[in-house]
Design a protein around this nucleic acid. Sequence first.
DNA 1: GCCACCATGTAATCGGTTACATGATTAA
DNA 2: TTAATCATGTAACCGATTACATGGTGGC
Lengths: 185, 185
Amino acid sequence: MSTHLTPTARVILGMLQLGAKTGYEIKHAVEVSTRFFWGASYGQIYPELRRLAQAGLLAASEAPRGGVRRTEYHLTAEGERSLHEWLTADDAGIFEMRDELLLRLFFADLLSSEDARAVASRMRERSEWILERFRELEPDARDGFTEGGGERFPHLALQYGIGLMEWIARWATETERALDEDRLS
Amino acid sequence: MSTHLTPTARVILGMLQLGAKTGYEIKHAVEVSTRFFWGASYGQIYPELRRLAQAGLLAASEAPRGGVRRTEYHLTAEGERSLHEWLTADDAGIFEMRDELLLRLFFADLLSSEDARAVASRMRERSEWILERFRELEPDARDGFTEGGGERFPHLALQYGIGLMEWIARWATETERALDEDRLS
DNA sequence: GCCACCATGTAATCGGTTACATGATTAA
DNA sequence: TTAATCATGTAACCGATTACATGGTGGC
């Protein structure tokens, strides 16, 4: 019986296994790590936590702090099996991207060369901005982003993000240059 | 009065301006060009075409071919204005990506080193596969993908896609190697 | 005769975001 | 006392995909 995990269930199970306990902590972990390639909102997280508990993949326990209601979750044996199965699945998984600036560039034959160049510039600026956000996360990621610590793959994923954004910034810069030469000849 | 364009309206207006005429042709153009960074399905295209016509951005005309019902669309002056406004907008636009293999890699501390390495391999295989699809599109893109022809930016966007996938494939290969060294020491 | 392609559409469902509401605790 | 942070949740809405239905045309 291989329980199919919804997209949000995948991050939830993973984050719980890496040490997050509450919905709030899951959300936080996502924001400081996977959000650029796998997001999750409260509107998804809380209902999904209950569904997963209902399905027997999670166990819930009330763990108030002072007067604050608080529910901690952890994986059941079934949940662990399910997570492991997904992590080792033999498929290419979801791969999607949506890039509005690239779409504008695709249509840039409809623009003046100045306006076309401006699209490339915005692409470079955007990746530089994201790059800064990534570098801010680096120190945390290096020592493992959960208190449990010791993880190395989150750091590797960040290195991927940094490398990717550097590549895009470089490409955009070269494209700006190419469009310039074009304009001046 | 700046009409806000829905995501799908953006490709529709652009594709129409590049020479597509019917919903079917728009869908086809998307499939052989932008689908990796901006998709659109019939379920979105047809209703949106009618909405855009209603809003005055498009003009529709019945253009049957033999006994086949067929509706051709083209931009009105208002539609052109709207498209141009979007293309030159001063913002970073939508930038999203969702990568399930990267998420698995992020969680790979939960896996054996063999299984972790397998995730990296799948990443490489996936980008190589996409790369092949891109290269198949290259000849068409070089001469402009619409019969009107003469566009250069669609080709540039394809070059971007190719470069990006090559970068990912390279990164994955290096990561495989790094994980190997690790395992053998 | 059949298959590939041209062509248009809809209903069900999904996965997700946004905006809102509520309230306790802690540190400045 | 006030702001930031911890914590949980829901309702409305959105954008999109999937699966289905229908039918003509052209070439082998």
